[in-house]
Write a protein that binds this DNA or RNA. Sequence first.
DNA 1: GACGACATTTGGTCGGACAAATAAACGCAA
DNA 2: TTGCGTTTATTTGTCCGACCAAATGTCGTC
Lengths: 244, 244
Amino acid sequence: MALNTDESIVSLGTDPANGSAVDAVVRQIRELIAEAGLKVGDNLPTERELCAQFNASRNTVREAMRILKAYGLADVRPKIGATITDNRMSRAFELFSFNTMEVSRKTFQDVQAFRDLLEVGSVEQIFNRLTDLDLDDLHRINGQLSENHDLQEASEIDFAFHVRLVSILDNAAILDVYKVMKPVILRIMQKGKTRRTFKTETFSEHEGVLEALSARDRLAFQYRLRTHLMTGFRNFNDEMEAIA
Amino acid sequence: MALNTDESIVSLGTDPANGSAVDAVVRQIRELIAEAGLKVGDNLPTERELCAQFNASRNTVREAMRILKAYGLADVRPKIGATITDNRMSRAFELFSFNTMEVSRKTFQDVQAFRDLLEVGSVEQIFNRLTDLDLDDLHRINGQLSENHDLQEASEIDFAFHVRLVSILDNAAILDVYKVMKPVILRIMQKGKTRRTFKTETFSEHEGVLEALSARDRLAFQYRLRTHLMTGFRNFNDEMEAIA
DNA sequence: GACGACATTTGGTCGGACAAATAAACGCAA
DNA sequence: TTGCGTTTATTTGTCCGACCAAATGTCGTC
């Protein structure tokens, strides 16, 4: 029987000050990467070396490595060891590839409110910057929606339409946020819809928005765009009630 | 010494068919959630129960739980157990929080425009949800700004003020975006300012915003908040020209 | 019935052990 | 010397049992 009779080794359970030991190891590994100037493709020390270096058990180090793997920052292979990667973008998509868990109601609500703020709320800047090129692009993208696509492709086109709309703002920060939220927005767009829904309702709603844009009608633009976003909300409610 | 001399217990290392045992446990937990119809807020079985259920060791289950935690699908607390959550949006944003954008003029402009959309543009929702607790908190936070702080501390308080303002919206997506942009916003806040600037001008501008909030004066709120954000922009221009 | 001491439960950590995979060293033959 | 198959050593993957600290439940006392 192996007991912890040596009090120099016996320790401490949860570190009260710094959170869990695993989090501490994650932090230290990231510091190690930063200080050593390690780049993508470089190898991390072996698990046992990290144990010694950070004075942690191998299980703790392994749990830390699981986190780094889940974040797409490390790629661990047997015998090879851990190499630094950067698959954060694809991981962001995987987060929402879980078929088992739907986007929660609160998430849905928050994201749609967010989009309302960004798209409907920026009406002034959009109309100030709007060019014919923007309108042409938007019409072209929406035109693809009327063609035959599966649900995934159709939602991608729907998303591209809204991204193109937001891109009129020429704001990199907003565009980045939109890209990060893409997986969530895609799932939201697919909620309660069929391939046919995209070809008919979504297409028409987009056309209505474009019409208002062409006519430089701010109020109509806001009304139709907000209604469009709310339509998804109605779908979400229907689907929820159908389950219940 | 405890050895695995009993071959009925001795096992198998990596499951050749399904990838790693940890991935198998992750999959089984997801199936469990789906089949049992568990919702956000529900509790998962304890680690030891999962061990028995999936015929896996506790370390394997723990590594699987680390993955779920990293994906924002579970929240594990000592003694309480694991509860199902959906913080995937936060995780998605966190994945990109490592980027240290340099604050160029364009970045500054974009971020401030973004904040204008979020803070000034959400005036209706803010006033609808506003409570006395919100006002008390905001006053308390801004009060700290009148005390003596170095530039870093002062900007942190300034940031806390705006985060508290946005938190009135009760929108996790917006709050996450704010947190991700924190480093950039902090640098923007520090631009062209001294410790004294925070104590005087920034403090007064915040007080003006709070005054409008207290009076439920939407227009004054928008005007003062926008002016406040634009003030930073003026500072930025001055500094840029001074460098040039 | 209220309150405090004790036992139980549960996640967090540790150390050790074995299995499997593979890089690296080695040996042998052409 | 060079090429190729074999052996060895290293490393990750998994499992086991144990201890700790904290939260919770239980029970006895007053």
